[in-house]
Amino acid sequence: MKRRVLPGFGLSLGYVMAWLGLIVLLPLAALVFKSSALAPSGWWALLSSPRTLAALRLSFGGAMLAAAVNVLAGLLVAWVLVRHRFPGRRLFDALVDLPFALPTAVAGIALTAIYAPEGWLGRYLVPMGIKVAYAPLGVVVAMVFVGFPFVVRTLQPVLESMEREVEEAAASLGATRWQVFFRVVLPLLLPTLLTGFGLALARAVGEYGSVIFIAGNIPRLSEITPLLIVEKLEEFNYAGAAALGVAMLVLSLLLLLLVSLVQRASRRWELPR
C-alpha cells in the first residue's frame, strides 16, 4: 500500500460518488424514467417531427457556432488581458464575468432592445438585411453572450504560465510572428481552448432565459429545444417533455465526449506513456 501525504482515498471517493449520485445522476434517472411512459411509436413521432428536428438543429448548431465564436473572441480577450498592460485593464477584466452575474432574462431583454428593428443597432442592421432579433442569428448572439466568460477564464492562467522563452526561441530560429503564433503558441493553447469550447457549448445548449426573448420563438425557424420542452410541460405532456430532455441529454453527452476525445488527442504530448 502506497503512503501519501494526504490520505483518505476511500472516504473522499465515497463522498464524490454520493454527491454525484444525488445531484447529477438521480435527476437524470428520473428524467429517463419519466420519458419511459412514452411508447416507442410516440418517441418516434415526437423526435421525427419537423418542428422538433428544427429545434434540435438550432439548439446544437447554434451552440456550436456560439462556442466557436467564443473561442476566437475569448482567445483575443484573454491574450490582451494577460499580455498587455493598459489603463482600465482590471476593470475590463472584472467585466468579463458579467454575463455570469446577470439574470439571463435581463440579458435577453437587453439584447432584444439593442437588436430589435427599432433598437440601437437593429435600426442600422435591419435595413442592411441583417436580421438579428426574432431570427436564428439572435439565438446565436444570446448564446455567445452567456458563454463568453468560459474561454477567457480557462485560458488566462495557461497564458500567464506560458514561457516567453519558447516564443523567443522560435523567433530566433527564423519564425515570423504568424509562424510563432500558429506553430508554437496556438498548439500549446489548443487543449485549453477545447476545454473552453466544451464549457461554452454546454452552457449554450442549455440556455433558456436570454434566448427566448431575442429568438421570437417562431416554430421551425427560431425555436430552441428547451422552449419546446417548456411548451410540452405547459400542456401537461410530461412524458413528451422528458423524451425531449433525454434526446438533448444524449446529444449533449455525445458532443462533450467528442470534444474531450479531440482534446485528448491535442495534448498527447503532455502525458507521454
Binding site: E163, E165, V166, E168, A169, A170, A171, S172, L173, G174, A175, T176, V184, P187, L188, W269, E270
Partner: peptide
C-alpha cells in the same frame, strides 16, 4: 532577431513541448 542567424540556448531549454 529572426534574420540574425544566432543559435540561442536557454537555461530552461524552451523546447516546443508539443
Amino acid at each position: 532577431a529572426r534574420k540574425r542567424r544566432v543559435g540561442l540556448v536557454f537555461q530552461h531549454y524552451a523546447l516546443f513541448r508539443h
